[in-house]
């Protein structure tokens, strides 16, 4: 009896395992298609001549093939040419995102250190206000920013400058940096710092020599997050910097579509070029970003 009953029992798990294997691979294939098909479409569109983007049936290979959509981003440089606008946008994106990242790391981690260590009344409230400020949508602040910039502060000539972009980007990601870095500082045992100070190091020296090296993963994660956030910004240049002195890559790509002619292949090429830096960051440092996000905003 037992032996007879055991036989179908033994056979069943093996078969369900096999089926679930197939199911897993089918789902993996489905997710891969969903993820990669749009990317593939973007890349082949960027390598097509214009006729290839409006043909029916649509060619699923880059035909008729051309490198020209990329070439025009770098050649024939003259005022108001496409390469002029692209290269200015690229320069502004690099300057603004880098400066924002540096400022955020310096100011943000300094504040985070204080909020993690100081015995000070109201430090939790301050942390909370910073975090809340980060959660405020840009769109809720863009109108006062615009009005203040062009009226009361017009003497400072901030409109259409990278300086203004950096100031505003910095304020938007500062809360997140402070929150994540505060978690990293709090996780470092205070005894470590005290030991250094017993050995005669001042608070500042112990902060720079002992504590900061231990928070490198956190600095990397928050720095990259800040960089990605400011690289992606669109509404600030749209309202406050629609000129070549301040607009960034997202605004440049938007402006390509705003023309009377909507050249999908050029838009796609611009899109691929502006997506390269963030994609590389995610490919190589994705792990740090995830651990920063989970350490900072998920686990607390």
């Amino acid at each position: 009896m037992d032996a007879m009953a055991a036989q179908p029992h033994q056979a069943r798990p093996r078969r369900t395992i096999k089926w679930s294997r197939i199911g897993v691979y089918a789902l993996v294939l489905l997710v891969l298609t969903w993820t990669l098909a749009p990317l593939y479409f973007l890349v082949i569109t960027s390598l097509k001549q214009y006729v290839g983007t409006i043909a029916y049936p649509l060619p699923w290979l880059p035909t008729p093939f051309t490198w020209n959509n990329y070439a025009i981003m770098f050649t024939n440089y003259s005022p108001d040419s496409i390469s002029y606008r692209f290269l200015h946008a690229l320069r502004n994106s690099v300057i603004a995102s880098t400066a924002t990242t540096v400022l955020n790391l310096v100011f943000g981690s300094a504040a985070a250190y204080v909020l993690a260590r100081a015995r000070m009344r109201g430090k939790n409230a301050i942390t909370m206000i910073f975090l809340a400020s980060n959660l405020l949508p840009t769109v809720a602040l863009i109108i006062p920013f615009y009005v203040l910039t062009v009226t009361y502060l017009s003497g400072l000539h901030l409109y259409d400058t990278n300086t203004l972009m950096v100031i505003l980007y910095t304020s938007f990601s500062l809360g997140l940096v402070i929150w994540i870095m505060r978690g990293y500082f709090a996780s470092i045992p205070i005894e470590l710092e005290e030991a250094a100070r017993v050995d005669g190091a001042s608070r500042l020296v112990s902060l720079i020599r002992i504590i900061l090296p231990l928070t490198v993963p956190g600095l990397l994660a928050t720095g990259l997050l800040t960089f990605l956030m400011s690289w992606d910004n669109f509404i600030l240049p749209l309202v406050l910097g629609p000129d070549s002195s301040a607009y960034n890559l997202p605004f440049f790509i938007y402006s390509l579509s705003g023309q009377y002619l909507h050249l999908n292949n050029e838009i796609a090429a611009g899109g691929v070029l502006s997506a390269i830096p963030p994609v590389l960051i995610v490919l190589f440092f994705g792990k740090y970003i995830v651990s920063g996000l989970t350490a900072g905003s998920v686990k607390g």
């Binding site: 992606d232 997202p250 899109g271 502006s274 994609v279 960051i281």
Partner: peptide, 24 residues
């Protein structure tokens, strides 16, 4: 490698994402 690939769309700038889906 699957985990890395799945992460890529998140890195695509929002405006590029908009343009891409506009074409689709």
């Amino acid at each position: 490698i699957f985990r890395v690939i799945v992460f890529i769309p998140w890195a695509i700038p929002t405006v590029v994402n908009a343009m891409l889906w506009g074409m689709i």
